[in-house]
Design a protein around this nucleic acid. Structure first.
Lengths: 166, 166
DNA sequence: CGAGAAACGTACGCACACAAACAAAGCCTC
DNA sequence: GAGGCTTTGTTTGTGTGCGTACGTTTCTCG
C-alpha cells in the first residue's frame, strides 16, 4: 500500500516538472573512459571476487588488511595500523571493534604512552589469517585473470606510482 | 568520563589475554604489493582529489556519474542507469534520492512500463553537470599527475580489461 | 489464457570511508 | 614548569556499496 501510494504521488504530477523533450548535455563526455570510473569499477570487481573467495571466513578486504598487518608487525598501535593500511582513524575504529568482537585480536594499553592502544592477534586470529592469506592469493589470480604476466607487472607498477607507494 | 571508564575496563585485564610475546605470521605476506590493496589506495586517492576539486559543487563521484549518464541519454530508467554506472539497485536508490532532494533531477512514471521510473535532468541539474564536467577533467589530471602520457594510456587500457570494459 | 519466472523499484541492515568535533595524554618551547 | 601544539583514540553524521527480502508489474511458456 505504502509503495502504491508513493508511486501515485510521483505519477500524479501532470505537466509542470516534465514538459517537453528531456534536457541533454551537449558535450560528449564519456564516463567509461575516465580514470575515476575505471578505478572504481576495477576495485569493485576485486572486492566482489574477494568476498566470493573468502566466503566462509567472513572477512572483508579491510579486515583482512588489518589482520595481515598486525600479524606482520606483532604488535601495533591502532593509529599506526591505520596509517599502514590507509584507513582513517574513524574507519579503523569500526574495523577493530568488529575483529575484537570475533575474538580475532586483542588490545592492551601501551605502557609507555597512555594515549595509545596496542593490538595483537589472538591464536584464533593468527590461524584465521594464515588461512586467509592462501585464499587471498587465489582471489588476486581471479581478479588479474584478464591480464597476462607482463600486463600484471605493468599494472602493479602503475598503481604503485598512482597511489604514492613508488 | 565514559572514555576514561572504557579505557580502564580495557586496561584492567592483567595477564590472561596478553601473556608473552605477540603472535606473528611466519609468511612474508606483503600487503603493499597486492592488487586489491593497490586498487583500493588508488581509488581512495582519486576520490580525495575529486572531493577537493569539486568542493563547492558538493558532488560525490557516484552522484556525478549519475548526472553525466542521465545528461548523456536524456531520459533513463533508474535500473538502466544503475547498470550503466555500475551501481546496485539499492545503491542507485540513495543517490537518486539525494539528487532529487537537491532538485538536480526529476522523475516520472514510464508510460509504457508501470514498474519503471524515468529520470531526467532539471535545468539546475544540467547547469551543474556542465560545470562539473570541466572540473572533473582537472581532477583526472591531478590523479594522473604521477604518470606520463604513455603510462596513462597503458593504465587506462589495463583497467578497462580488468573491469570488463575492454 | 493463466501460472510461474523475471524485472523494477523499495526497504532494511551491515560494513567501509571520511569530515568534524572532542577529551586525554604527551611534547616542546619559552 | 606552564601554556600551547600535537598525537591518539572516540563519537557523530553523511554517503557509498552490497545482500536480502519484499510487493508490484510485466513477460513467457505451456
Amino acid at each position: 500500500m505504502k509503495t502504491a501510494a508513493r508511486r501515485l504521488a510521483v505519477a500524479k504530477s501532470p505537466a509542470p516538472p516534465v514538459a517537453g523533450a528531456p534536457l541533454r548535455l551537449e558535450s560528449d563526455y564519456v564516463l567509461e573512459q575516465h580514470i575515476g570510473h575505471l578505478l572504481r569499477r576495477s576495485h569493485q570487481r576485486h572486492v566482489a571476487n574477494f568476498e566470493k573467495g573468502l566466503g566462509a571466513l567472513d572477512l572483508t578486504p579491510t579486515q583482512f588488511a588489518a589482520l595481515a598487518k598486525i600479524g606482520e608487525r606483532g604488535e601495533v598501535s591502532q593509529n599506526l595500523l591505520g596509517r599502514q593500511t590507509a584507513m582513517d582513524p574513524a574507519t579503523i575504529q569500526g574495523v577493530i571493534q568488529r575483529l575484537m568482537a570475533r575474538n580475532l585480536i586483542e588490545r592492551r594499553a601501551d605502557p609507555s604512552d597512555r594515549r595509545a592502544t596496542l593490538l595483537r592477534l589472538t591464536p584464533a586470529g593468527l590461524a584465521l589469517t594464515q588461512n586467509a592469506i592462501v585464499k587471498v592469493e587465489a582471489v588476486s589470480q581471479t581478479t588479474l585473470a584478464p591480464l597476462d604476466a607482463r600486463e600484471r607487472a605493468a599494472l602493479a607498477l602503475l598503481l604503485q606510482k598512482l597511489s604514492g607507494l613508488a
